[in-house]
Design a binder for these strands. Sequence first.
DNA 1: GGAACTAGCCTAACACCATTAGGCAAACCA
DNA 2: TGGTTTGCCTAATGGTGTTAGGCTAGTTCC
Lengths: 189, 189
Amino acid sequence: MTRAGLTAERLTVAAAELADEIGYENVTVSAVARRFGVKDASLYSHIRNAQDLRVRVALLALSELADRVAAALAGRAGKDALVAFANAYRAYAKEHPGRYAAMQIDLDPETAAASAGPRHAEMTRAILRGYQLSEPDQTDAVRMMHSTFHGYVSLERSGGFRHTPREVDASWARSLDALDSILRNWPPQ
Amino acid sequence: MTRAGLTAERLTVAAAELADEIGYENVTVSAVARRFGVKDASLYSHIRNAQDLRVRVALLALSELADRVAAALAGRAGKDALVAFANAYRAYAKEHPGRYAAMQIDLDPETAAASAGPRHAEMTRAILRGYQLSEPDQTDAVRMMHSTFHGYVSLERSGGFRHTPREVDASWARSLDALDSILRNWPPQ
DNA sequence: GGAACTAGCCTAACACCATTAGGCAAACCA
DNA sequence: TGGTTTGCCTAATGGTGTTAGGCTAGTTCC
């Protein structure tokens, strides 16, 4: 009887793949075990419990997304950077809906601090260097950008835009134009 | 043995309350049954299954939120209306996190059409009457507004803004200023 | 090469949840 | 009051999460 070679990492990747394939909410310890042809209980030497597995998937996704965003940003500034960031973000969410969903669980503060979350924040701030905003406007702008991206992607995914015929891609592009315009003319206090 | 007096409506309300109290993902058929002091199986004369119960909670929440937004909008126009809408939306999400989470499930098209979702869309469009936008800009603007609200609320709830000290309320107000400003000066194609 | 050890996967067992089938009694209705 | 409906129950099945303890494949050390 040869061994399956389970590790926390392999389980995490398998869970992430499963999430993209069958939906995040259907990812279960049993389903992951099945994928490796082992019994459920065997996973518990590698992960603490189901929640632990979910957290690992979230961290994986956060890190993958940060890498892609970083790559997209390289060598760009201003609106170019804004659009590259936004498109990388949205593309990741579309390619990996399950991982994107996993990212939404709330991590406890120390896990969050050790995650790629701070890298996201840092990169978002980097974009704003092209827009001459100082604190606290910068923080407000970061929050608005992040909200818009996340809100758009998440409404798009859940079919919130289906009822209106207008192309979602076109609307997205205009929203980015609007964001750019507002960052260039951030309303004075 | 007196009867518990179950109905689909009472079960839905109880499930919604539970969602706000213990979190949407912990709402289970068993937990609802427990709350009424009846056996799990007894619920199945009133609801088809767990998914049916979830859909009912989502519809309840959509309808409650639409009512509150409608009340907030009454007699307002322009930026006043925008801010009233946004604040009603955010307040509902904070008061009823479980119901807000329930609203995010995707309804099948005909259920969605019969839900309060279209009322939301209509009210959002009504706000834009104060801003002289014609199609397709109007659709794009509706999508951007909705994304911003949803994105903000959902990031705030999941602790996405915790790392930066700036007050979330203040940032929110500035984001609404920014939205207003952009609606007044929607960038030309 | 064999003995001792480690670690990886297994079986067994339990609790909770979702769901279906069929029974019995309370509530209503004639 | 007797019959019918309907509401909740018991019983049973299957999936999932989790713990405890066992067996053996692979490694280490003489």
